[in-house]
Design a protein around this nucleic acid. Structure first.
Length: 570
RNA sequence: UGUCCCGUGGUGUAAUUGGCAACACGUCUGACUCUGGAUCAGAAGAGUCCAGGUUCGAACCCUGGCGGGACAACCA
């Protein structure tokens, strides 16, 4: 009994090492009971599913502990950042369902304050203006296993440093001529402590501060102080900043300002895709995909267009957990979560992807049956709809085999299947194109006693297939997506470029698909289950009222495909 | 020949902080079914990187190895 309740507890409230730290801080009243986090993107690209993890974590923690979460754009590098990215990032965060209230901040808001901090360090003899070139600086820095050596400019007087730094700001030097560095320890085993650069000269216009500044703080100099200024209690970031933490702490202690606590967690990898901004950019620029919002991309805009729900993404983030070890999430677990949600929420509909014409010879020419169809067997409150049935229908080519393999429960010459919500039909004749041999149409007979729900026949068949009445059908284009790459970790191969592993079948476009007539009144970007096929949604970009385009979000689990695959490999 | 971090079934997490490893995905059976969907029932699969040590008892503590990752942008 006790075990069970314990179990339930751990299921409903998963814990992780970050929560443990926060709860301990709450116990010891470290920050007067405050929990304040932030999501700090650089506005230099589109957000992807990895960022979603960080967003959910930061906002989720704030929510759970009655705290606050800021959004802060780390816009310290004007050469790479643009206002349009700011907008797309905000849109993505809102879409995920998070609200930062009026706490939308920018590192550039703190440029003046940061400048004052720098002067404070110079006055303490803890920062100096260096005139080494970038190349020289790099050489002087040493390597991870060899200590660096001190710059000849390292011991300027405070007055000299102050004067030079002021002139840097005033624009008296060219890009790269001077930098401001922290004076720490050129022989530190931690390379971040080897006199890191705090300011560099960039005569460049900034998306927010315009031409006000020509010196810009580096990330290392700006980030910790920005957190401190905002009163961030728990500054959560990814593992690669672990080695930077001693530096951030050094700055904060020298400056004697509020001490945020940095906690690092492992970033998340997804199987069968790539996640780095650089690689995603390469896919876009090389036209391997159709833009950042291509539904095959792991970007939030791509996944949104693909049809993923915000809830499913939040779910993934939560179920994945938080840890410090590198992880590769199996895309299958992703697919499971989206299916689970869509199965419950989505209206079922009959759609034929690859139409094969079927003529029911013994069905009256002009007769139209109005059949009852259930909108969602998982949720009766979603009601029913009428489905017209007539003499000429379409079925999917996949559902007919001239020579059916073992365990093929669908239609074949002389065999019977049930038409979903309609009758049992039997295939009487196969008509082929005399020249190509391609199957053009099927002639079938129907058993009128087998109408769905009539209970007037005890006839049983193994298979049920979907169909659409030809004269009532609506045409549409359907895009089937598969994994973008054909290997688990495309970026993990040292011999081959990741682009060599692109799955050539990641996108299959099918024209002239046939939809049931209820799909005529599409108002929103509703999602549907095309029965036996998968979950689909309208494409937000290309679909027009007179030219419908659907994206496949995810297929249904397909045990027949498994059987078929297994028999082929034998 | 440095510093820091990490190492639990195929994958991702958990183990009441020392009491002989749990959950989810995936895989495989079977039941049910007018979606080969969903659902239900069940199975296989790790002895916790290795070796010592402390202890009545270790995934958890200690020591030493091994393996993986991060760090040498005036990027973030």
């Amino acid at each position: 009994m006790e075990e069970k309740s314990n179990n339930l507890k751990s299921v409903s409230k998963p814990s992780n090492f970050i929560k443990e730290i926060i709860e301990e801080d709450l116990r010891t009243n470290k920050y007067n009971g405050r929990v304040h986090t932030r999501f700090p993107p650089e506005p230099n690209g589109y957000l992807h599913i990895g960022h979603a993890k960080s967003i959910c974590l930061n906002f989720g923690l704030a929510e759970e502990y009655n705290g606050l979460c800021n959004i802060r754009f780390d816009d310290t590098n004007p050469t790479k950042e643009e206002a349009e990215y700011v907008d797309s990032i905000k849109e993505d965060i809102k879409w995920l369902g998070f609200d930062w209230g009026d706490r939308e901040y920018y590192a550039s808001d703190y440029f003046e304050e940061l400048y004052e901090y720098a002067i404070k360090l110079i006055k303490k003899g803890k920062a100096y203006v260096d005139a080494l070139s970038a190349d020289e600086t790099s050489k002087y820095r040493g390597t991870p296993t060899e200590p660096g050596k001190e710059s000849p400019y390292r011991n300027r007087t405070t007055e000299e440093n102050l004067d030079l730094f002021e002139k840097m700001r005033a624009g008296e030097y060219k890009d790269g001529e001077l930098v401001l560095r922290a004076k720490i320890d050129m022989s530190s085993p931690n390379m971040n402590l080897r006199d890191p650069i705090m300011y560099r000269i960039r005569h460049e216009s900034h998306h927010r501060t315009g031409n006000k500044w020509c010196i810009y703080p580096t990330y290392d100099w700006a980030h910790g102080q920005s957190d401190s200024i905002e009163g961030i209690t728990h500054s959560i970031c990814t593992l690669e900043f672990e080695n930077h933490r001693p530096l951030y702490n050094w700055f904060i202690e020298e400056l004697e300002i509020f001490h945020s606590q940095q906690i690092e967690f492992a970033r998340f990898n997804l199987s069968y895709t790539v996640m780095s901004k650089r690689k995603l950019l390469e896919l876009v620029e090389g036209k391997y995909v159709n833009g950042w919002d291509d539904p095959r991309m792991p970007t939030l805009s791509g996944m949104r267009r693909r049809g993923y729900t915000p809830k499913s993404i939040r779910n993934i983030s939560e179920k994945k957990g938080v840890a410090k070890r590198d992880a590769v999430i199996d895309i299958a677990s992703f697919e499971h979560i989206i299916r689970e949600e869509l199965n419950k929420s989505t209206k079922r509909v009959l759609v034929v992807l690859q139409p094969l014409k079927v003529i029911i010879d013994n069905y009256p020419d002009d007769k139209i049956d109005e059949l009852d169809a259930i909108n969602n067997p998982e949720d009766p409150s979603m009601g029913k709809r009428k489905l017209p049935f007539s003499k000429i229908i379409y079925i999917d080519k996949d559902d007919f085999r001239e020579e059916p393999p073992k365990k093929f429960y669908r239609l074949a010459p002389g065999k019977e299947v049930r038409l979903r919500y309609a009758y049992i039909i039997k295939c009487e004749e196969v008509i082929k194109d005399p020249t190509t041999g391609e199957i053009i149409e099927l002639h079938c007979s129907y058993d009128k006693n087998t109408k769905s729900g009539s209970g007037s026949s005890s006839k049983k068949v193994k298979g049920t297939i979907h169909w659409v009445s030809a004269q009532h059908s609506i045409d549409a284009e359907v895009r089937l997506y598969d994994r973008l790459f054909s290997v688990t970790n495309p970026a993990g191969d040292k011999e081959n470029d990741f682009k060599d592993f692109i799955n050539p079948n990641s996108l299959q476009v099918i024209h002239n698909c046939k939809l049931e007539p209820s799909l005529k009144e599409l108002k929103t970007i509703d999602r549907f289950q095309f029965e036996r096929l998968g979950y689909f949604c309208l494409d937000s970009v290309d679909s027009k009222p007179n030219k419908l385009v659907f994206n496949r979000i995810v297929s249904l689990r397909d045990s027949w495909a498994k059987i078929e695959k297994a028999s082929k490999t034998h």
